[in-house]
Design a protein around this nucleic acid. Structure first.
Lengths: 251, 251
DNA sequence: CGCGTCATTGAGTTCGGTCAATCGCTGTGG
DNA sequence: CCACAGCGATTGACCGAACTCAATGACGCG
């Protein structure tokens, strides 16, 4: 979920998706390029643009190659739930429904590869390895959604934000082994992701800073100073603590 | 998600999953049966048994053929988030990870068909139609998880329960066109599904009854009396209201 | 440098949680 | 068949965490 640090350095458009099969890689892809034997179009978006909205006919599949995207649902009363943040090498659409079940907006300047949905799934159906990879990605996404439900439903505000910061840190670490500050979304986006308000997010982030758990740089920068303390506040991350403790609890 | 009404009537073990490919159907399957050219074992569980727990090595795939199952995660502090309720024709495991990310327990007497995971995915890899079906199921599960996150994060307690009742009713209607009362899980399970407490669930259900929105029969029975009023309380269901209103809101 | 947007901080309110007591199914055993 | 035991559901009183409303502060862009 690395945003475009500046507009002139774009990560290569290879991804988790079928690394061996990628025909097109590097930063110089033409608008028309081929991935997995499929032609796709390159689309560039400025920040805060709709890529698609909830209810739109679903006729394309998107691969993020640069930038940052938020997926969200909204309710009639105006409340918004962000389902996740997507970055380079993330695929946007797993739904096999005629219409999008959520919307997607760019958070920063973003580049996408766009596949027509028909050929995309036709290709998947004809290549078990690709389809299995796709399936695994969907399963991973499902796992993240479950983790989100756990966070929103069962952790308090502090715990939610602690878990969120740990996740953001983990992602950043995975993206590049050496990193100093972790990029965070706007407070309001964090809030809508965790089912809180901007004020609560801001307050708790401030309290974490005061306690020396994190360092905040500018509006978007964050660095974990005391990972174990943050981990404790999260009352168990799915990956680190969860497993061990489960065994005791469940008879 | 129809539970075993009584122990002697079992729904047939055909399912959403590759209806045309099911070799074994009906209630008289032997412990060793074949579905999709795969041999599977029949396993029967009493109520309140662990099928598997979070952290267990994942070496089997389960198809529910009768009964009701809850999937859940727990936190170190003991809080539990139920990810979903499963019934006949539901598949339990989409994860492609070495270990289970959540636990599964029976809620009532339950029958499962158990597939060893290796052959299951080997078969999937060799049959694009089956794999695509599997992928669609995973995508549907993802969609449900997103809806859950929306509910927990953005709807109030009343809205959550309203949305839950509508969903339960919809499921029941899908299972059998003529139904009188909808089966509900224990209050505690509803609570842990919606990120609430048993007390809150109980209170709100009582208030719905008082307002004439629902009729409650015994501990498990529910019937919607005023669907539109309940729909309003849910401030928009993803399927019914969502789409239309989205279009206005998003510029 | 100045403005707009986002973030922070404070004060007061509310919704849902906690604690505790009672009620009433449901199923079991006499 | 009825009585009883035990667990789950209900209801009430109180509390506290997070929300709302409001004002101030500070990035960061033009």
């Amino acid at each position: 979920m690395e945003p475009l640090q500046s507009n002139n350095q774009l990560p290569p458009c290879i991804g988790k998706l079928g690394a061996g099969d990628v025909v097109c890689s590097g930063t110089n892809c033409l608008p028309e390029c081929r991935i997995l034997g499929l032609s796709c179009r390159l689309r560039k978006f400025a920040a805060r643009q709709d890529i698609f909205v909830q209810g739109d006919v679903q006729n394309q599949v998107y691969l993020v190659t640069a930038g940052a995207v938020r997926l969200y649902k909204v309710l009639c009363n105006g409340r918004r739930q962000i389902m996740g943040f997507k970055g380079p090498s993330d695929l946007l659409c797993f739904d096999r429904t005629p219409r999008h079940g959520f919307g997607a907006q760019t958070m920063t300047a973003t580049e996408l590869r766009v596949f027509p949905i028909g050929p995309f799934y036709a290709a998947a159906a004809s290549d078990p390895r690709f389809l299995l990879k796709l399936y695994s990605e969907a399963a991973a996404e499902l796992s993240r959604a479950h983790e989100l439900a756990l966070t929103i439903g069962q952790r308090g505000a502090e715990g939610s934000i602690a878990a969120f910061l740990l996740d953001a840190d983990r992602r950043a670490a995975k993206a590049s082994a050496e990193y100093d500050y972790v990029w965070l979304p706007m407070r309001g986006d964090i809030a809508d992701y965790l089912g809180l308000t901007t004020e609560t997010v801001s307050r708790i982030l401030s309290s974490f800073k005061k306690k020396g758990l994190v360092e905040l740089r500018g509006r978007r920068g964050m660095r974990l100073l005391n990972r174990t303390a943050v981990l404790n506040l999260a009352t168990g991350s799915a990956e680190d603590l969860g497993r061990r403790v489960m065994q005791e609890r469940l008879h």
